[in-house]
Nucleic acid binder design. Structure first.
Length: 1127
RNA sequence: GGAAAUAUAGCUCAAUGGUAAGAGCAGCACCCUUAUACGGUGUCGGUUAAAGGUUCAAGUCCUUUUAUUUCCA
């Protein structure tokens, strides 16, 4: 007996199948049953278990799961090692929140050790929840032996990688300009800067400074027609950066003007350059072209005059005199103090020319680097280059006038600021520039400026030491190899990722934190010697030397590679000096990007595993990982392909040019149903557990996959899941219950010999043909990482073709009580489809598919596998595909549909038989095709016969339409006239074209062939007619007395069947019928008695007057009574 | 500011440059059913985000703009 169910319950099915998988170790078997020599490699991007999983994780993981399951069906061995991302800022923040501390308290209120212990616990906090979701959603990944990024082995692999890079000079120390708090002496992360309240309105002294143009070949044009000095004006809100000025930035497309006027403080005649759009900010309209001769120093109205206009691009390259020449050198004189182009320059405010101090602004730093402008720096006591402002925020001694002064007023204590004569440094600079004829405008200006959330003081943008990976050294290779990676969607690879690679800068690895992978670099204090440690063994060797040198205690052993323990390690240099570890941690993205190597503890262990799983065939994550995981995987793989002999050797063996993954699917976001981001705060986040519990994982997965391509954002709507449940799973479930209903009655166990496909009836061969076409299509879609197309194709097949055509039209074949070959054929065909569907859908809906597969197979034992996930993908057999058959079945569906629409139009319902339909013959093969599906059409539409007519009698009215595609090449620009001529063809013209095969148009300019047009039989005068494309159906609506009686008989059958159903009779129960009837109905029933009895399984129908206890029913507006009883 | 994606019916999505822009869902009306909470037929619903351009022909190609989103700065 096939298992029968009361109703579809996907949630319950999911739970039961999950148990079944666990008990029978199906996941393990899905791997061990495939040959190790045929691997398909998947990398799991590690999630962080310190946050709860959301519905978007179900999305991302469904995609991963689908392709892994698909490849298993295709015979590959797909190992899926799980992983956990355990380091990073979110974990630190969670711990700080939980403990109620801030970063400042680390090392004070709480020891670094306790802090790190707390992180270690925090990071696996929701592991159980994650594991639970993984199981319930049906995501198969090996959680028994996951890689965990905080483990010593994992970190050791990272150190090894870093050492490979260090050996090839791909790891170096430099600096970046970052937000910096002098008070607390630390850099701030962008996260910290994004805290609410960090940006505040402040009033700063601002200076529009005059930079004196050097007169030379480049600048000569500026001196045309004037006899004063020429200055470029640049505005700054941070006057303290002026001694560090090294360039002026202009927008190349911006228009600038040269203006003659007087300096408002020295009253000297000057000529200044600024953006044309900003003239009114600096000059009063009344002063324009006023008399220069009449001007006296101190006049309110200062005369001015535009001398010339120039484009920014003309200014580029002009040299100017250093504004505040405290520090200079040969390099600076030669390469700095010039005008450079920059894309960030606007005419929003200031002068349209930006004062650039490379070490005190991120944009400045970048622009100067791009233009090879050196920075204004001094040497400290160790000979290292340092900026003119020290780490406390004070000017260095070289800036003689302000040596030791804080650059920001807020860094002084309130007492100091209250002292008489106290002036902020910015003000002192202003005064100096005013007297030197170098300030054009000085005023207070209120603007928003970031503050440190710790000390509440304005931050500085300041150059901080950082360790970098020289990714730019392998940029070209990264770009080249990226072109060999298959991106889904393609645009993410060429666009977002490709552009990112084109504009690659060196990877800043440094993070000033506590919980993360420590940088394995020890340095002498003066920086002359450094060592990069690549393994624990190497470290121990170095420690031994250090113990010998007396720097470390006897017997020291590093148990945990994290801080603070690792900071206890002091090494000894070749010259006998102490070497301390560089205090930075490395970017957590390096952790996850190194997982191909570190997950196996390569190269210390797992060489075989690594070799068999490198590179990945397939990875998938959200599109937000493009510059995260996707990039770090790619970057590390490409660098190691250059830097590591071990990796090079393996690349050679496996034929890898240096990539980490071959195929990558980057999925979009999951939004709420209104297209808003899901967030806990807004309360619109969908709980994945609730969803799975309510609808089942299969419905959720199918919905997400079938609804939109993975890379489009998904607007998650619960109603959509319900629709999927009803429409797809509901329909499929019904096809299964239909099968079991009759198969159990007939004891069909597929024990009979297979009926040859060629001997099966038309409809069976048709659905088998479609099924094979479907298998091929779906296979192609999965192989091409197009799960949405696969799901939609399966859905369409199940709903439209399988359920609503094949089964509907085959129903009668199952009722027949005798076990004919036709019936057997119907069973075998239906069964074959169900089994194939279970396999095709199993990657997307793994639970229901397995239930379907197992329930069927439990009776027949036709399949040798205990789970659909151990089976193989349906083989496509081209011999079973018959395109013509598929075509004519389509014809049958279309003719039926048109006939039904005609019935509706004239209000004759389907139970009323009609004598015939009329089909105009379009071409010779048409009639042949229709004849083969005639019976299907007739029974579906309840029509007695089909007649064909040709147009020889001039009976049919035809319509002609130009075929634009065919005509386009022929007539080109004459299309409009030709099309009009064709549309205006008379019936005779059309007839002529049909008989001759061609007809001239436009006085013979063109020959129109039959293939250039579409001819449709539009109308059959006097008949009810309907059209669909080229197809036309005419219906004979005459109802003879005989037809009428047959119609009544059908109504009668319908009423009896309804009564059977309400009375709960089995479909096999035989009955006796008593009727109290009108004469008309009695006559109709008696004339069709044997037919009716056969349909309703009646042994007898007797007519009685005044029947008691019968059911009242209405047929043809006549009331009668019917009583039925079991025999 | 840079890069990318998306924009088609109330909703979710289709539509090799080829001329009536289609499905499903939802709504409405009628019908069918010894598998079906299914289905059928009809109806309602569109300035294909906007504006230019290329072309005999544009939802589709090009340019600009707008909106939403993501990543980077």
């Amino acid at each position: 007996m096939y298992k029968e169910y009361k109703q579809l319950n996907l949630s319950q099915t999911g739970k039961e199948i999950l148990d079944f998988w666990k008990q029978k170790n199906i996941f393990e078997k899905s791997i061990t049953s495939r040959p190790a020599g045929n691997p398909y490699t998947f990398y799991e991007g590690p999630p962080s278990a310190n946050g709860m999983p959301g519905i978007h994780h179900v999305m991302a993981r469904s995609i991963k799961d689908i392709f892994c399951r698909y490849k298993t069906l295709k015979g590959y061995q797909v190992k899926r090692k799980g992983g956990w991302d355990t380091h990073g800022l979110p974990i630190e923040l969670a711990v700080e929140k939980a403990l109620g501390i801030t970063k400042d308290d680390i090392g004070k209120k709480i020891s670094v050790k306790d802090y790190n212990d707390a992180c270690r616990k925090e990071v696996m906090r929701y592991t159980d929840v994650w594991n639970d979701l993984t199981e319930k959603m049906g995501y198969w990944v090996d959680l028994n032996d996951p890689y965990i990024t905080y483990k010593n082995e994992y970190i050791e692999s990272l150190w090894w990688i870093l050492k490979q890079l260090h050996n090839k000079d791909l790891l170096y120390k430099g600096y970046t300009v970052q937000p910096y708090s002098p008070k607390s002496g630390t850099g701030l992360s962008s996260h910290e800067l994004n805290q609410p309240g960090t940006y505040k309105m402040v009033k700063d002294t601002t200076i529009t400074a005059q930079f004196k143009v050097k007169r030379d070949g480049d600048s000569e044009f500026l001196f045309n027609g004037i006899d004063t000095e020429v200055f470029i004006l640049a505005w700054t809100t941070t006057p303290w950066t002026l001694p560090s000025n090294c360039a002026l930035a202009v927008g190349e497309a911006i228009t600038y003007v040269k203006i003659s006027t007087f300096n408002p403080y020295t009253y000297l005649p000057v000529c200044v350059v600024l953006a044309k759009d900003l003239i009114k900010k600096y000059f009063k309209a009344e002063g324009e072209n006023a008399s220069f001769a009449d001007y006296k120093g101190g006049d309110k109205i200062i005369p001015w005059k535009i001398e010339a206009e120039v484009k920014g691009s003309q200014l580029v390259g002009i040299h100017y005199e250093q504004l505040m020449p405290y520090v200079t050198n040969e390099d600076l004189e030669k390469n700095a103090f010039r005008v450079i182009p920059a894309d960030f320059v606007t005419t929003e405010d200031g002068t349209g020319i930006v004062h650039t101090a490379s070490v005190f602004g991120a944009d400045d730093f970048r622009a100067c680097k791009e233009n090879n402008v050196p920075s204004v720096m001094v040497k400290d006591e160790t000979g290292k280059d340092v900026p003119l402002v020290n780490k406390q925020g004070r000017f260095v001694d070289e800036v003689t006038d302000y040596a030791g002064r804080y650059v920001k007023e807020e860094y002084y204590t309130d007492a100091e600021r209250a002292e008489e004569g106290f002036k902020p440094t910015d003000v002192l600079i202003s005064i100096k520039l005013k007297t030197e004829n170098r300030a054009f405008d000085v005023k207070k200006y209120e603007h928003s400026y970031p503050h440190s959330w710790r000390s509440d003081e304005p931050i500085l943008y300041y150059p901080l030491d950082s360790w970098f990976i020289r990714t730019t050294a392998v940029k070209d290779k990264m770009v080249e190899l990226n072109k060999t990676i298959n991106w889904k969607p393609e645009s993410t690879g060429t666009g977002r990722f490709g552009n990112w690679l084109e504009n690659l800068v060196d990877w800043n690895l440094s993070r000033s934190r506590y919980w993360g992978t420590p940088l394995p670099i020890w340095r002498e204090e003066n920086g002359t010697e450094e060592i990069c440690i690549g393994s624990i063994a190497e470290l121990n060797e170095e420690i031994a030397k250090s113990i010998k040198a007396g720097f470390m205690p006897e017997g020291f052993k590093l148990e945990d590679m994290h801080r603070p323990y690792v900071d206890d390690v002091v090494l000894v240099s070749s010259t006998g000096n102490k070497m301390l570890r560089e205090p930075d941690l490395i970017d957590v993205w390096f952790d996850s990007g190194a997982m191909p190597y570190a997950q196996w503890h390569f190269p210390f262990e797992g060489q075989e595993e690594f070799k068999n799983a490198y590179p990945a065939d397939f990875i998938a994550e959200g599109v937000d990982q493009t510059r995260g995981w996707f990039f770090t995987l790619h970057a590390i793989a490409v660098m190691l392909s250059e830097a590591s002999d071990e990796v090079k050797a393996i690349n050679e063996q496996v034929g890898n040019k240096g990539i980490a993954f071959k195929n990558v699917v980057s999925n979009g976001l999951v939004l709420d149903k209104n297209g808003n981001k899901m967030s806990k705060r807004l309360g619109n986040a969908v709980d994945p557990f609730e969803t799975i519990e309510k609808y089942g994982a299969d419905a959720a997965r199918w919905y997400m996959i079938s609804n939109a391509s993975p890379w489009d954002n998904l607007k998650f709507n619960e109603e959509g899941i319900d629709e999927v449940r009803r429409k797809f799973f509901g329909t499929l479930y019904n096809t299964y219950s239909f099968f079991t209903l009759y198969a159990n009655i007939d004891k069909f166990t597929y024990s009979e010999a297979e009926i040859e496909i060629s001997k099966r009836p038309e409809i069976d061969r048709w659905i088998i043909s479609l099924l094979n076409t479907l298998s091929k299509e779906v296979d192609g879609y999965y192989a091409d990482f197009e799960p949405t197309k696969a799901a939609r194709a399966i859905q369409e097949f199940v709903d439209v073709h399988f359920s609503n055509w094949f089964i509907r039209l085959s129903r009668r074949r199952f009722w027949k009580s005798d076990n004919t070959e036709d019936k057997l054929s119907a069973y075998q065909t239906l069964y074959t489809c169900l089994i194939a569907i279970s396999k095709l859908m199993s990657p997307i809906a793994p639970f229901f598919a397995d239930r379907l597969y197992c329930d069927l197979n439990a009776v027949t034992g036709k399949e040798e596998f205990e789970s659909v996930h151990l089976a193989y993908f349906p083989e496509y057999d081209s011999a079973l595909v018959d395109a013509e058959l598929e075509e004519r079945m389509q014809l049958a569906q279309d003719v039926s549909s048109l006939t039904l629409s005609l019935r509706k139009k004239v209000n004759i319902n389907v139970r009323q038989p009609l004598s015939k339909i009329l089909l105009p013959i379009l071409d010779k093969s048409f009639k042949l095709h229709v004849e083969q599906v005639k019976d299907l059409i007739l029974s579906e539409t309840n029509i007695k016969d089909i007649e064909y007519i040709t147009d020889t009698a001039g009976f049919i009215k035809k319509k002609i339409k130009p075929n634009f595609k065919a005509l386009g090449q022929k007539v080109g620009k004459d299309m409009k006239v030709v099309a009009e001529a064709i549309t205006n063809f008379s019936q005779e013209d059309i007839a002529a074209l049909e008989t001759n095969g061609n007809i001239p148009v436009l006085d013979g300019k063109y020959e129109v062939l039959a293939t250039d047009v579409e001819i449709i039989a539009e109308d059959v005068p006097g008949w009810q007619v309907a059209n669909l494309g080229k197809l036309t159906v005419a219906l004979d609506v005459t109802i003879t007395n005989e037809l009428k009686q047959e119609g009544i008989s059908r109504e009668f059958i319908n009423r009896v069947q309804n009564i059977r159903k309400t009375k709960g009779f089995e479909v096999t129960d035989r009955i006796n019928v008593q009727v109290s009837s009108t004469p008309a109905i009695r006559e109709a029933v008696e004339n069709n008695l044997s037919y009716i009895c056969a349909e309703i399984l009646a042994d007898s129908i007797t007519f009685v007057d005044n029947l008691t206890g019968g059911e009242p029913v209405t047929i043809d507006e006549q009331e009668i009574l019917i009583a039925i009883s079991k025999v």
